[in-house]
Simulated assay, not measured.
Amino acid sequence: MSSLLLPPHPASAGAARRWAAPLLPADVRDPVVLVVSELVTNAVAADEAAGIADDIEVELVVDPPHGHVVLAVTDASNRPLPPSPTQVPGDEDGGRGLLLLEVLADDHGWSPRPRGGKCVWALFQRGCAPRPLRTEASPPLECADAV
């Protein structure tokens, strides 16, 4: 597992992309890099809206034996993740992050952190590997519970 702490600043999305890209296998690099960028952007916006200046944590697990990559982005906002939109008007500057998450990830979800904040995770299958079994209550990665 690799992890990265980022300030809640708009430039953090680009830093997360540059950090994640070389860690990823070529067959999932583009969708994971796009989703990490969107989730970090959403985390920055959520922290700003809540007036929180805590770091955002990005975790990445590349699991070749099981054929998947797991991404988790943890922020300090208690604001729940809204439902994914079904469409976004073409003239809107934002609002596509959760739609991209829905389309590009094989599975995703979020969970509140015990000490406040939330963790949003996404699972990306590599090639034709069978999907791992999981229950709705347990994400495929331990979400950070940073103080």
Score class of each variant (00 low, 15 high):
138 S>D: 15
56 I>P: 01
19 W>C: 10
40 V>E: 04
143 C>N: 03
68 H>C: 12
9 H>Y: 03
120 V>R: 04
82 P>M: 08
125 Q>D: 12
7 P>V: 01
14 G>F: 10
45 A>H: 12
50 A>M: 02
60 L>W: 05
62 V>W: 01
116 G>A: 08
16 A>E: 06
74 T>K: 01
66 H>W: 04
136 E>W: 10
135 T>S: 13
133 L>R: 14
141 L>M: 14
37 S>M: 10
136 E>C: 08
133 L>D: 14
48 E>C: 00
120 V>W: 00
88 V>P: 01
135 T>Y: 05
83 P>A: 13
29 R>Q: 15
81 L>M: 15
20 A>S: 14
128 C>E: 13
25 P>V: 05
65 P>C: 02
104 L>P: 01
39 L>W: 03
55 D>K: 07
104 L>A: 07
108 H>M: 05
11 A>S: 15
131 R>P: 02
112 P>R: 11
13 A>S: 14
79 R>Q: 13
113 R>G: 08
7 P>S: 11
111 S>H: 12
98 L>T: 02
18 R>K: 13
29 R>W: 06
27 D>L: 10
31 P>T: 09
32 V>R: 07
65 P>A: 02
81 L>A: 09
82 P>S: 09
111 S>D: 11
73 V>F: 06
114 P>G: 14
10 P>K: 04
17 R>N: 09
84 S>E: 14
132 P>D: 02
140 P>N: 03
77 S>H: 01
55 D>G: 09
23 L>N: 06
26 A>C: 05
63 D>W: 00
23 L>T: 06
46 A>V: 01
133 L>F: 12
91 D>L: 11
6 L>M: 06
144 A>V: 13
33 V>K: 08
105 A>Y: 03
83 P>T: 11
75 D>N: 15
51 G>T: 04
62 V>F: 06
48 E>P: 00
137 A>H: 12
19 W>A: 10
86 T>S: 12
111 S>Y: 08
146 A>E: 12
52 I>N: 08
44 V>C: 05
141 L>R: 10
130 P>W: 00
138 S>V: 15
9 H>I: 02
102 E>T: 13
38 E>T: 06
68 H>A: 09
98 L>I: 04
3 S>W: 14
22 P>E: 06
52 I>C: 05
76 A>V: 01
134 R>Q: 11
55 D>Y: 07
103 V>T: 13
79 R>W: 04
36 V>F: 05
29 R>D: 12
144 A>S: 15
68 H>R: 15
66 H>E: 14
103 V>S: 09
107 D>A: 15
146 A>M: 09
10 P>I: 05
88 V>A: 03
31 P>G: 09
51 G>M: 05
7 P>H: 02
12 S>P: 04
83 P>R: 13
70 V>M: 01
47 D>L: 08
138 S>R: 15
81 L>Q: 10
106 D>V: 02
48 E>G: 03
67 G>S: 05
81 L>R: 12
44 V>L: 03
1 M>E: 11
129 A>G: 08
137 A>D: 15
